[in-house]
């Protein structure tokens, strides 16, 4: 990979860290922030995995030959893409108990985030599956590939390669969306920052660290995505055959 301008951020981050270590009373708010970060990660990773599974299921559902499956997948996508994540979280946590279904804050956060991201992911997967060249489907027909093998071994692997950049984007959005889980009483890194600000009044330092944390997490996702992409594309010239 060629060096990117973002590489400059590493020394900047180092200098920033030096500043914090020397001039701010980091010890007063950092432990609480790191506890919050743990919660953020505990929510983000399982949500992302669940969101990918939902994306594939609903994305293929939208292309199903079965009209009922198509309709249900379409309704899911439209509803969860069209409603604010915050409102979805409120529904899962405050409204469902009215109907006798009480979810823990953690489960509500996980479901809300993954259902929301999965609605976007479904569209990504649908587009990627449709972008697999027609000749690949025709080869499957002439080779008599059974339907599920056709998808699991031929179409989906190629579709996922096509989808990686868009899924990386979706994952970063999901990650940033976890900042809303304080709505269901979880103390994630953002909620921890807000609370520490009220206690210590280290406003500039706290929210700078907070911004940096989200930025670093996003970079990890971006890097993982780029790694997957180059790994996948090792053998492929995209747009071929």
């Amino acid at each position: 990979m060629t060096p990117r301008p973002t590489a400059m951020l590493i020394p900047i981050a180092f200098l920033g860290g030096l500043y914090f270590a020397v001039f701010s009373n980091v010890a007063s708010f950092l432990p609480a922030l790191l506890n919050g970060l743990t919660v953020t990660i505990q929510v983000a990773i399982p949500s992302a995995i669940l969101a990918y599974a939902i994306s594939v299921a609903a994305g293929l559902g939208r292309l199903s030959r079965n009209a009922a499956v198509r309709l249900m997948s379409g309704a899911y996508v439209e509803i969860f893409r069209g409603v604010s994540l915050l409102v979805i979280l409120f529904w899962l946590f405050f409204v469902l108990p009215e109907f006798g279904l009480t979810l823990s804050p953690y489960v509500a956060a996980l479901l809300g985030i993954s259902l929301n991201a999965g609605a976007y992911g479904a569209e990504i997967i649908r587009g990627a599956v449709q972008a697999v060249p027609r000749g690949q489907y025709e080869a499957c027909v002439t080779l008599n590939m059974p339907g599920w093998r056709k998808y699991s071994r031929i179409i989906l692997p190629q579709a996922l390669i096509i989808a990686v950049p868009a899924l990386t984007n979706m994952t970063i959005e999901l990650l940033k969306g976890t900042a809303l889980v304080s709505a269901v009483t979880l103390v994630d890194v953002t909620a921890a920052g807000v609370r520490q600000n009220q206690l210590t009044y280290r406003t500039i330092e706290i929210f700078s660290v907070l911004a940096l944390i989200y930025f670093c997490l996003s970079q990890v996702v971006r890097f993982a995505g780029a790694l997957l992409e180059t790994g996948f594309n090792r053998h492929l010239r995209t747009g071929r055959s």
Binding site: P133, Q136, E138, A139, T142, N144, Q158, I161, R240, S241
Partner: peptide, 16 residues
């Protein structure tokens, strides 16, 4: 179809 085999103009090999 088990009796039939086709060779395509664009090969249509599985690229992955």
């Amino acid at each position: 179809r088990t009796k039939l085999g086709m060779v395509f103009q664009n090969f249509n090999l599985f690229p992955h």
